[in-house]
Amino acid sequence: MVFSPNTNTTVTDSVATVEKSSDTGWIMHHILDSHEIEIPFIGQVPLPHIEFFGIDISITKHVVFMWLACLILIGIFYFVSKSYQKSRIPTGISNLFEILIVFVRDDIVKPTIGKGYEKFLPFLLTIFFFILVCNFIGLVPYGATATSNISVTATLAIISFIVIQAGGMIKNGPFGYFKGLIPHGVPAWLIPVMLVVEILGLFTKPFALAIRLFANMTAGHIVIMALLGLIFILHTAIVIPVSVAFALFIYLLEVLVAFIQAYIFTMLSSLFIGMAVHQDH
């Protein structure tokens, strides 16, 4: 529990420790979850420890930033849906979010799920915007990327997995759904093997979703940190322009990646839902 009067001391403190020990722990400190939150001009603020039936359910940094993302989303979409009641013509920010909503609906959900996509649209829109905003919060100074935590991405993938399976089972019936996993025209002796492979496949899909999002969001931050860390590791000012230029480049790449990962997570979830719902093709 450290209360710094201003951020400068915090930065110089951490730089000093880095220089002294040549430690790279500060990179992980940035990436990992923690029980403290850094707020500009205030410094480190501790977050409460909560325990519930032996499980540590503390409000950590990533939880706070998830909630911030939720508040931002609710605020924006409250405003957007209000603006639709006022007039049929979207203006300003509603226009931007309408483009994204229509993009998710017409270019992701409609082609991949097809008939009956309306039921899954709210889930996929929520997951798209949630991941998008979480990714972008991570790019703001002092922000933390909740989506660079494997627990968060795994949970999102598990929710996606549940939606995929539930969607498939509701549409085809639990028995029909598992029967539909095996492709038509497979020789009888291959069926047990195929069943194992297909059931394994059901779990690898969300696993890949979780790892992809986590790795993409973590990697960019580590690379930016490492590039800037070169300055302190090499103890020379010569690398500063190079480091900063590369870090800036990676940062811009991260903006792109933030979009692409939100898109890919939604796209693949939607695709898997479509495959589970319409098994016959």
Binding site: T60, L73, I159
Partner: peptide, 24 residues
């Protein structure tokens, strides 16, 4: 971290419900 997973689930489901009613 199990705690974070619980919070993520709760947060996401609440967000889904709120946005479904409020926005989508």
């Amino acid at each position: 971290a199990p705690g974070l997973m619980i919070w993520t689930t709760v947060t996401f489901i609440l967000l889904l419900l709120v946005l479904k009613k409020l926005a989508w």
